[in-house]
Amino acid sequence: MTDKNLIKIAEEFGTPTYVYDAESIKNHYEKLTSSFHKSTRFFYAAKALTNINILKYIKNLGAGLDCVSINEVKLGLKAGFTHNNILFTPNCVDLLEIEEAMKLKVHINIDNISILEQFGTKYGNTYPIFVRINPHIYAGGNHKISTGHIDSKFGISIHQLRHITRVMKSTNLLIEGLHMHTGSEIKDPEVFIQGLEIMFELAEHFPDLKYIDMGSGFKVPYQEGDIETDVKTLGKKVEKVLAEYHKESGIKFELWFEPGKYLVSTSGHFLVKSNVIKQTTATVFVGINSGFNHLIRPMFYDSHHIIDNLSNPKGAERIYTVVGNICETDTFAWDRKLNEVRENDILVFRNAGAYGFEMSSNFNSRLKPAEVLFLDGKAHLIRRREEFDDLLKNQIEVL
């Protein structure tokens, strides 16, 4: 997909609009499948982007689905994923939501002793489960998205192994999978190897183990010079470690990963319009027709998105601070070099496929943007832009 395609999409569908390039998703998925042994499976982390068309496309590529809410499970089933290709990994939910997932016959991953005990007491070995382990590995590019450290709410601590085995033996639990996820933006393949070795140490305590799920966290580059997770090197290292373990123990496990951002991030382009150029005594602001209600990552995670001026790609470079139209501080970029921006120019935020639309809101009673899928050389509207009536559709007037 070219910038000319993006300009045409902005002209046809307006702005703000999220655009996803199907070819990019396919390329990233095939890069993973070609880097790992054919027995390794990949479950797309739906929370990155759940548009039903994206789910269907990724399902057709051959991936499974990783879900963190019961509604993601239902979306996955509606998109055509079979129940045995869905893993449900909730956090801080009650037993009722776990039981709802049981009725849908998907794989279930439990991440705390309380629910593990309730589940085992009620169901024993009648429904096989996964257990999510907190490996106490600090990894990832931002503390807010690091999930495997000692202070994380996710998973059962490796130091609570005896509690897990106590529940397993006393309730006859059938544990067929172990899971861990240490965070996002992991640059060093050795983090995964360290985690895998921890899993091997734990495995001897679970006689019915079939699956080891290493989560994900593959880093994608957000700006020039960024390091990307070397999945080819990781694939070779993982295959070597698995082969050594099999030789020593005689045991083979099916290995799973859960890429989310890695598959969809670079596919996404967020199109906006410059509303106003505002010069102050210290700064030149580009005020756009969006805000953190549409793309919260820069304010929430201090994330960097490359911004390009599609309308004036050869204009002289100038320094701007790019801000939104929300009645809060919503700065996308401070002192950023851009080709000269004029009012009504179309700008694009790159790498906006993951956690962009998915984390959007109606803050300030502003409407959510449209979504477009660029597939086989054509732009397809896959979510209409909200209209005013959408703000009222679930409200009940009593006055």
Score class of each variant (00 low, 15 high):
Glu12Met: 11
Phe43Lys: 10
Ala45Cys: 09
Lys47Met: 08
Lys47Trp: 08
Leu49Lys: 14
Lys56His: 06
Lys56Pro: 00
Leu61Pro: 00
Cys67Lys: 08
Leu75Pro: 01
Gly76Tyr: 04
Phe81Arg: 00
Asn84Val: 02
Glu97Asn: 09
Lys103Gly: 10
Lys103Tyr: 07
Ser114Glu: 14
Tyr123Asn: 08
Ile129Trp: 05
Ile133Glu: 08
His136Gly: 01
Gly140His: 05
His143Phe: 08
Gly148Lys: 12
His149Asp: 11
Ile164Tyr: 05
Val167Ala: 13
Ser170His: 11
Ile175Gly: 02
Gly177Leu: 09
Pro189Arg: 14
Ile198Thr: 11
Ile198Glu: 12
Pro207Asn: 12
Met214Ser: 00
Gly215Arg: 02
Val220Gly: 01
Ile227Asn: 08
Leu234Lys: 05
Lys237Arg: 12
Glu239Gly: 00
Ser249Met: 13
Trp256Gln: 14
Glu258Lys: 02
Pro259Asn: 02
Gly268Cys: 01
Lys273Arg: 15
Asn275Leu: 15
Gln279Asp: 07
Thr280Ile: 08
Gly287Arg: 15
Ala316Val: 13
Arg318Tyr: 04
Asn339Trp: 06
Val341Met: 09
Glu343Gly: 04
Glu343Asp: 05
Ile346Cys: 05
Ile346Gly: 00
Ile346Asn: 02
Glu358Arg: 10
Glu358Lys: 10
Phe363Ile: 11
Phe363Gly: 02
Glu371Phe: 01
Asp389Leu: 13
